[in-house]
Amino acid sequence: MDVSEPEADLPPSAGVTTGSLARRLGVSPTTLRSWDRRYGLGPATRAQGRHRRWTPEDVAMVVEMCRLTAAGIPPGEAAKAAKAQTGRPLPQPVPVAPSRPPNHVVAAPADIMEPFPASRSGSGLPLGNVRHECKGLARAAVRLDAVAVQEQLTAVIRAYGLVVTWEEILSPALQAVGRKWQSAGERYVEVEHLLSWHISATIRHVCVAAAPGQREWKSAPVILACVPGEQHTLPLEALNAALAERGVATLMLGSAVPADALTAAVQRVGPSAVVLWSQSGSTASLPLAHHVASTRWGIRGARTQSHVLLAGPGWGRGQRPGLLRPRGLRDALVMLEGL
């Protein structure tokens, strides 16, 4: 185990400790030692009787390893590419005596287990069984590697489309970061902010690229709004972009829309539907939802009402009479396109 040495007494050329490097990269010290043992991704020189220290060249090599594994490249192949930067040869595999856990359950290799091994630094994220792209995105976010986060967001949306990307990659990553933030106090707030900002910027780019050149739409727009007191807009932004891709007009009002402003917008615009987002039960307001659903608009003698969709976990799981309750992005799209 590496014990921190006083870095202030050492010249910059001495390098950084394993613990410091692990914190910088958002991985555990155990992971760095495993990479060193398995693939030779360790310090090139080691002073006798001193703790291992990583030079800038060593750090660059491991940063490249993190970038490649975050992109979904198997660790063995990523290590070869990372070492190619320094010209180091890969070490010969060390034979390990086979062993079996209790009840003859075969253990998974360390390099294909959870991407954030449990560590005393608290860097693990509760991701569970998700796509490798989700794990890679979370790795990059924990490292605060903005370039890698943006590159991966662009790549997955191009590869899978917005709906699959949101439901199977972005949403699980955001939920994992949110759970980690709640359990770790003020830590990981910066990770959530970085990830949320880049996801929002990417989704808005999709929305702008999909919007038609003309201002005239073929149907009444869909109003998207967070209920009063609700600040979480990313799910609505994803729905807004997905509707734009399908040629459906929208009016995005964003976070914490006051009740009076929401009613005024319904009366002025005459939307085909209103989507109300609530992230938590503390912001969900059924009286407001019923009020919006009963708001009439249109010319005298032909006044009508809008369909109201209750979106988000804050509304609970039960159906509400007279109100639509989508279960996710794909379900909301089916409902709105059906209207």
Results as ranks from 00 to 15, higher is better:
M1A: 14
M1Q: 07
D2Q: 08
V3M: 06
E7K: 14
E7Y: 04
A8F: 10
D9N: 11
G15F: 04
V16H: 04
T17N: 03
T18H: 01
G19N: 05
R23N: 12
L25R: 11
G26T: 14
T31M: 14
L32D: 00
L32Y: 00
R33G: 06
R37H: 13
R38K: 13
T45F: 08
D58N: 15
V63G: 05
M65K: 14
I73C: 05
P75G: 06
P75Q: 12
Q85Y: 02
R88T: 13
R88S: 14
P91D: 04
P93N: 05
V94Y: 03
P95Q: 04
V96H: 07
A97G: 10
P98T: 15
S99Y: 12
N103D: 09
V105N: 04
M113C: 08
E114M: 10
P117C: 07
P117H: 11
A118G: 13
S119P: 03
R120C: 01
S123Y: 13
L125K: 00
N129G: 07
N129S: 12
H132S: 09
C134D: 04
C134V: 14
A138L: 10
A138K: 13
A141E: 03
R143L: 03
Q152P: 00
T154C: 08
R158E: 15
G161D: 06
V163A: 13
P172V: 09
A176P: 10
V177Y: 01
G178F: 04
K180Y: 03
S183L: 08
A184H: 06
E186I: 12
R187V: 09
V189G: 06
V189Y: 05
L194C: 07
W197C: 07
H198S: 12
H205R: 10
V206Y: 00
A210I: 06
G213Q: 13
R215H: 12
W217F: 03
A225V: 12
P228L: 11
P228F: 06
Q231L: 11
L234C: 01
L236H: 01
A238M: 02
L239T: 13
L239G: 05
N240T: 06
A244P: 01
L251F: 02
M252N: 10
V257C: 08
P258C: 08
A264Y: 03
A265L: 14
V266H: 02
Q267K: 07
R268K: 11
V269Y: 02
G270E: 04
S272E: 05
S272V: 14
L276F: 00
S278E: 01
S282R: 15
L286P: 03
L288I: 08
A289C: 07
H290C: 05
H291Y: 06
S294D: 09
T295I: 08
R296V: 10
G298S: 11
R303Q: 15
T304A: 07
S306F: 03
S306N: 08
V308A: 03
L309Q: 02
L310A: 04
L310V: 10
G314R: 04
Q319T: 14
P321C: 08
P321Y: 01
R327M: 15
V334G: 05
V334H: 10
L336P: 05
E337S: 12
